[in-house]
């Protein structure tokens, strides 16, 4: 059998699945919005507000996750101590926890019966509860994003040439100087990639928001509400399509910027 024909036959099933269950549905989605759907979402302020809070949560998630993952990742990549393996295993265990479970864990942490509430009560303070708000959602997305971002940062940190740091130190750079001039620039591509994934996930996921189950008005929740409760198919479709386009574009841009490191 000629090589080309064999290649075509081998890849055809995957392409067929992609066409039938992704491209065609997305095409339907694009047209289902109709002129009405797109006009509505562009003119009604509450969609704009929802977009603003979605982007705010996504940006916050990205910034906080990157800061935490960089600190922890550099620490773990550059030190060896007993128990390091266990710690790393614990930190990456939630790698594929679904958002809806993460939402529940946020309730366990910061809900009405949560750890934070009980501790603050035991210390004689008020019952601190923030699970059911944008902060709770933020907390959930950070929880969700830390394991994966941490792995990316550590992989990149272990590839950094230690001689660069030694060279900087030999030239008299301080610890902060080394961090600013050597480590962070070296990690930049990985951070860009991981940050983009954080941002896209936080924009498009809604399991966490769903589990927290209150008036959190992020875009995926709005889509769900429009579709199920109000049967407003045109608006739901238009919002979905634009949301999909946006997250895909963020990831594609980041991949361009980071030289292919982003997923």
């Amino acid at each position: 059998m000629p090589d080309r024909l064999r290649a075509a036959l081998l890849i055809a099933p995957a392409l067929a699945v992609f066409l039938a269950f992704f491209l065609v549905p997305l095409g339907q989605l694009a047209v289902a919005g109709g002129a009405g759907g797109y006009t509505t979402i562009l003119t009604e302020p509450r969609y704009w507000r929802s977009l603003a809070s979605t982007l705010l949560v996504a940006a916050g998630t990205t910034a906080i996750t990157l800061a935490i993952a960089t600190a922890v990742g550099l620490f773990l990549a550059r030190t060896r101590f007993p128990g390091r393996g266990t710690l790393l295993a614990l930190l990456t265990l939630p790698l594929a926890f679904p958002g809806v479970v993460v939402g529940y864990l946020v309730i366990m942490l910061a809900g009405r019966q949560g750890l934070v509430a009980n501790i603050s009560l035991a210390l004689g303070g008020d019952r601190i509860v923030f699970a059911y708000s944008l902060s709770g959602l933020l907390l959930g997305y950070v929880y969700f994003s830390i394991p994966r971002t941490l792995l990316t940062v550590m992989a990149a940190a272990e590839k950094l040439d230690p001689r660069l740091e030694e060279a900087a130190r030999s030239l008299g750079a301080s610890s902060f100087g080394v961090l600013r001039d050597v480590l962070l620039p070296g990690l930049a591509p990985a951070l860009t990639a991981a940050g983009a994934i954080c941002f896209a996930t936080a924009t498009g996921a809604f399991g966490t928001a769903f589990a927290l189950a209150s008036r959190i008005d992020v875009l995926p929740m709005v889509i769900y509400t429009e579709f199920t409760l109000q049967a407003n198919l045109a608006v739901a479709a238009a919002l979905s399509f634009l949301l999909g386009l946006a997250t895909w574009a963020v990831l594609a841009l980041a991949r361009g910027a980071s030289g292919g490191a982003a997923a």
Partner: peptide, 20 residues
Amino acid sequence: ALVMPVAVPGIATALGLILA
């Protein structure tokens, strides 16, 4: 193309599947 579905929120893909 084949890795694109990861980049698009599941809710959008699902809505498309229902429409189609």
